[in-house]
Design a protein around this nucleic acid. Structure first.
Lengths: 213, 213
DNA sequence: AGAAACTGCGAACGTGGTTTGCGGTTTACA
DNA sequence: TGTAAACCGCAAACCACGTTCGCAGTTTCT
């Protein structure tokens, strides 16, 4: 049965049968716990069901697919962005504070990094967050499309930072002849000092470029 | 058998047995053709093998896993970035030209967008590209770590742009009560004019923020 | 009362990645 | 030159996954 309507609009249960043993929220909680502990790949229908002492097929009484579950997990975690930090100072500063909150969320649940870029339907908490960001940008005199693009780029950059924060360093270039890459060797020989505030600096440069002019 | 060494360093074949029917390059070519035609999900071992008139198991004579194949596909496509555009003007302008070349690559092979953010080992072509970018940045007086970060952010932003260029618009907010999101309604009511040069503008703001100061 | 719509559950289906075992082929080495 | 090791293609099998199906029992509506 192909249910086209997104899961947000579908009722949790009908009006007839016996009272369900579980709930969507319960399932989502178990799935998130699994993802936090062992990563997104460990969130299989069977594993989630086992955590709830039931069978994999039973989950389909509450969800219509695994993608639905991932959508629900995403929106639940996006809900953790609340309470939204109160905007202070110029809009760009307030946006950067919001981005930091997003980054904290990614640090708590690293698997969300793989879920955020999906083109699936955005949930109610995602909408609320987006609306709040637009509210912060209200005093900025630029077209709404520019604000959309700036916000999309903001969360995109947050995921980029979160990604290489959580990624293990690559297995190096073992066995490859590096002598063909002189600039790379030079850069590795003298990496120079590491700069702080990279996150803030990046976002400020990006947002001011997108929201002004 | 877990082979820890990355595929780049492993020889294509040993010295004993009969001459292999296929080659790694041939397999990678078939896999890329499949991905271009039907998306990355269609690149299954069985499908790639079928395109070569063989069985899935036979591919493991040439590769040790599907991830290896994806790594090879990635590096092959990264090789299409050649010939590198000759740097003209200030380094930031040259970098933007390089980023545009990356974006063209993403447009030709949209599946690469899903492969680039993987934390797997970078291949020889990836190293060559990286080395070239560092060469372009050579005259810029800032620590090498800053250049690393700027380049990582650059390709990251390219994938962000490429992603929502290739993504279908989301299935809208069907059935959700939008009245709770006033800023969103207002923004949709008057989206304003669309701005050109968004790609260039974004990258310029980002790169100047990361490479100066 | 009886039908309709639900519930949990376990088995099964189809599709993936990967492993294994076999018969045959080529090379290295004594 | 003969033999053993290392390689080849191939097909079957293994295992895990998402998902579907059928069944027996439960609740609610008419």
């Amino acid at each position: 049965m192909s249910d086209a309507s997104p899961i947000w609009t579908r009722p949790a249960r009908g009006a007839r049968g016996p009272q369900p043993t579980h709930t969507r929220d319960e399932i989502v909680t178990a799935a998130i716990a699994l993802a936090d502990a062992e990563g997104l790949a460990a969130v299989s229908m069977r594993a989630v069901a086992a955590a709830l002492n039931t069978g994999a097929g039973s989950l389909y009484r509450y969800l219509s697919s695994r993608d639905d579950l991932l959508d629900l997990m995403t929106d639940r975690v996006v809900g953790e962005l609340r309470p939204y930090p109160v905007p202070t100072g110029p809009p760009v500063d307030a946006l950067i504070a919001l981005a930091q909150r997003q980054r904290d969320m990614c640090r708590r649940h690293t698997w969300i990094i793989e879920l955020l870029p999906r083109p699936t339907g955005i949930g109610p908490e995602g909408l609320a967050w987006f609306d709040h960001c637009l509210g912060v940008l209200a005093p900025v005199p630029c077209p709404a499309t520019a604000k959309f693009e700036a916000l999309a780029m903001m969360t995109g950059v947050v995921t980029l930072f979160a990604r290489d924060e959580s990624a293990a360093p690559p297995p190096a270039f073992s066995g490859i002849d590096l002598t063909a890459f002189p600039h790379l060797i030079a850069a590795f020989a003298d990496p120079g000092p590491r700069r702080p505030d990279l996150f803030d600096r990046t976002l400020r440069g990006l947002l001011t470029a997108l929201l002004t002019g």
